[in-house]
Amino acid sequence: MDENLAAIALTLRLATTVTLLLLLIGTPIAWWLARTRVWFRGAVAAVVALPLVLPPTVLGFYLLLLMGPNGPVGALTESLGLGLLPFTFWGLVVASCLYSLPFVVQPLQNAFEAIGERPFEIAATLRAGPWDRFFTIALPLAKPGFVTAAILGFAHTVGEFGVVLMVGGNIPGATRVVSVQLYDHVEALDYAQAHWLSASLVLFSFLVLVVLYTFNRRASSSFRLRG
């Protein structure tokens, strides 16, 4: 039972960290994708979307190699005195960020694109410079997109399995998240524990989604009305 609680706590910590990091990383990427017209925009969009189509284990495999002792990322983290990332919590964070990136970038990109040119033009004629326009026009008008991006990024991180197993392994308290713990219970034929964990996960996910979607519905409907 304690193991289950530890796995839940670790999962929440991982999902929260990843969601916050992804909102920070994903916002400029989404903004750039929504506004740029350079020729390699398509290639960047494809790289961001890759995790949508790749089997998670493929991503996990390459990350393991990259971040391992013989990989370039591994060499870098070792030279910085950070040690190796595979089979650590921060290794999981890096892997999850890559894996969940499209689920954050795409809603943000859609939200930025939905604003259209007009509000930015209005702001420019009122003497707002580019940064001013980003913070006072783009961010507030894209609010529903941020809510959706946060929900999807969080939920997707909670639900991942393949990448976690490849990169993080199964270390209690460090990398053993709920999905891995559940797999262990089923392997051990401990169906009572599996039920307990699965049901609480279902309930939790449902409640989070209900709360956030209710909020988002209100935000997006008022957005439509005002637009």
Partner: peptide
């Protein structure tokens, strides 16, 4: 635009919606 001392009134949807 933001450095030009102009006022501009658009045809429609001229107000910041938020």
């Amino acid at each position: 635009t933001h450095l030009r001392p102009i006022g501009y009134v658009f045809q429609e949807a001229s107000l910041l919606p938020h």
